[in-house]
Design a binder for these strands. Structure first.
Length: 587
RNA sequence: GCCCCCGUAGCUCAGCAGGAUAGAGCGGCGGUUUCCUAAACCGUAGGCCACAGGUUCGAAUCCUGUCGGGGGCACCA
């Protein structure tokens, strides 16, 4: 880690001569390295091993562009006034830093850096000519990630809750892709067991009711109108001679296929496509049996992890209490069917065996308890460090629907739910729906007022952002008509032409975009992108208000200002693309 | 009873791996278009960051407790 003389000769010459461009992510890394080396130089072995030096964007322009708090954190370690420590650091590095125009010690001991104009111009140029993605750090570095989301069982249309999850999972996937991960999107569904049986029986009941039979939907069955529609379709296709007693498989298969079609069509409204739909039946019987065998072979405190029920030997329990969970659970029922937890553990083992470096599950709050059990099971089978290193479970809270000021209780089985389709219709557009969900972080509850949906959508911040994009696109058209184009990509732009207060403010905002986006990716928090977008839109609108961009009397200055606009436009469109929201050229 | 999430401006929510005067959108009030899209911009009002302790040079952010709201605790998924 040590670097003699603080500034590596290679780095110094590289940045100053051979490598005229510096990317924001690299600049931060280099600053951190230089600061870290300087601190090591001054205080040497007083510094503990894990001491992290970080450079982050300043909150306020008064404090420069980038800020380092290390001197404050150092105070406790070296027992000195943080301002004095900061000054000692600054003395050593001042004037030696590439791309930095000034360094100062402010407040209680912050070290603040101002970025040089030339650097800011060069970053804006990279954004304008190469786009946002080219400046995002390659965090994944080709590693493979699997994101599992939606995973709703084929029993009916997707609802509002699924919509939130779909949008969230898709945005996380895209965000990972944008930062260098190779992402597979996977949808896991249960196509066996009790729910499918109930679905088939519900369809059979509606089918028989067509010809006047008494429709008896079984207890716990499905009451949605769509079942009746399927029943009519089934009769059109296969006549009216089917009966549940003789043709149960036909009913179940028909319902299951219709449900999956419905779900895929709902997902296509959101432009979501999965790489794989993984059916639970693929795990039965081999994968599940081998999972039971592995779990059975484990003993904790002299007790087998799997044990038979006292009354019924066919029924098997998993001793979750030995794994730190509150209660043991049945994993195989007396009729030989598996409960949810067992195939789910088997499914995750399958995922782990496929060699992913990162696996993300996006679940609703109802999965909280079971997902903890599943994780505990995986940890005992695969080792807790393997699981914690590779598996991340994101639990999002539910959407509460409000209509006429009252909360609506939703139930898919009772047929009382608001579909994803209806939600999109009420909100007025797909973009609005997506953006609305994405402005909240996953763990925040969300009230969705259906009566206000459309009204709110007109005031939705997505239009504010899209408008900025459309406005810039308009400026590009105007510039073209006036014969003004972007500067040449390979010729250095004269920074003097952008030496204004408003230009600098916008460039500084742009410079922050790649690192803020990368931070959002590492936190798996796509809602942060909506914050960046709002900042960019505000920044641009303000810039536009104060600065005349296309000016036929001054084509050179117009051209470089146009470059800033283009940098802004491509930043906005790049972020919107990650969120799956359209970036319109006109509004 | 156990577990999870939330409590920040009138409303919906950001900010929370501690840091320098707490933010946005919408709503309120008042301004700004002979000029590249006014779906914009500028100004202004509005906050004991639920409450109480604790840790710290420093807490909206971390810890503990209390209160309030939501959700989950199937041999459904």
């Amino acid at each position: 880690m040590k670097c003699s003389g603080v500034i590596c000769p290679e780095f110094s010459s590289m940045t100053r001569r051979n490598h005229p461009k510096m990317e924001p992510a690299s600049l931060r890394t280099e600053l951190e390295r230089i600061l870290s080396a300087t601190i090591d130089d001054i205080w040497g072995n007083q510094i503990p091993d894990g001491f992290q030096v970080t450079v982050s964007g300043s909150d306020n322009l008064e404090f420069g562009d980038l800020s380092c708090q290390s001197a404050l954190k150092l105070a406790r370690i070296v027992h000195d006034n943080p301002r004095r420590s900061a000054s000692m650091i600054v003395e050593r590095i001042e004037g030696e830093l590439p791309w930095i125009s000034s360094v100062s010690v402010d407040g209680p001991g912050f070290i603040n850096f101002s970025l040089s104009l030339q650097y800011l111009v060069s970053v804006s140029g990279m954004l304008a000519f190469k786009g946002l993605k080219s400046l995002l750090p390659d965090i994944g570095n080709g590693r493979k990630a699997l994101v599992e989301y939606v995973s709703s069982n084929p029993t009916g249309p997707l609802t509002v809750g699924h919509c939130r999850q779909a949008v969230l999972g898709e945005a996380i996937s895209s965000l990972l892709e944008a930062t260098g991960w190779e992402v597979s999107r996977e949808y896991y569904f249960n196509d066996t067991g009790r729910q499918m049986m109930l679905l088939g029986m519900s369809l059979a009941a509606r089918y028989e009711a067509i010809d006047g039979g008494e429709a008896e939907i079984p207890e716990g069955g499905y009451h949605g109108d769509y079942i009746t529609e399927w029943a009519l379709e089934l009769r059109d296709e296969q006549g009216s001679d089917l009966s549940w007693e003789n043709n149960s498989t036909a009913f179940i298969t028909f319902a299951k296929e219709r449900a999956m079609e419905m779900i895929k069509s709902d997902l296509s409204l959101l432009s979501i496509e999965f790489d794989r739909y993984f059916a639970e039946s693929e795990l039965i019987p081999d994968a599940v049996r081998s999972t039971i065998a592995k779990l059975s072979s484990i003993e904790i405190d002299g007790k087998s992890l799997v044990y038979p029920d006292n009354d019924d030997k066919e029924k098997l329990w998993l001793r979750f209490t030995s794994l730190g969970r509150p209660t043991d659970r049945v994993i195989v029922r007396d009729n030989g069917m598996y409960t949810y937890r067992l195939p789910d553990i088997a499914y995750h083992i399958d995922k782990f065996s496929r060699g992913y470096d990162l696996m993300i599950d996006v679940f609703g709050a109802d999965h909280l308890d079971t997902s903890k059990d599943v994780t505990a099971g995986l940890e005992i089978l695969l080792g807790s460090s393997t699981v914690s290193d590779k598996l991340t479970i994101i639990i999002h809270q539910f959407v509460t629907l409000v209509r006429e000021g009252r909360k609506i209780k939703m139930s898919t089985r009772a047929g009382e739910f608001v579909t994803l389709r209806k939600l999109i219709h009420d909100a007025g557009s797909v973009d609005v729906t997506k953006y609305l969900f994405l402005t909240r972080r996953a763990e925040a509850h969300m009230d969705f007022d259906l009566d206000l949906a459309r009204k709110e959508s007109n005031e939705n911040p997505v239009y504010y952002v899209q408008y900025a994009h459309a406005r810039i696109s308009g400026i590009m058209r105007t510039a073209k008509e006036a014969g003004i184009s972007l500067p040449d990509e390979h010729t250095a732009v004269s920074a003097d032409l952008l030496d204004g207060e408003h230009e600098r403010e916008l460039m500084r905002l742009l410079e922050l975009v790649p690192s803020r986006t990368a931070a959002a990716a590492e936190a798996r928090e796509p809602h942060r992108l909506t914050e960046i977008l709002a900042d960019l839109a505000t920044g641009f609108h303000r810039f536009y208000q104060h600065v005349r961009i296309v000016d036929s009397d001054d084509p050179d200055a117009s051209s470089v200002r146009l470059m800033l606009c283009e940098a802004c436009r491509r930043s906005i469109s790049g972020l919107l693309e990650i969120l799956g929201v359209d970036a319109p050229e006109r509004m």
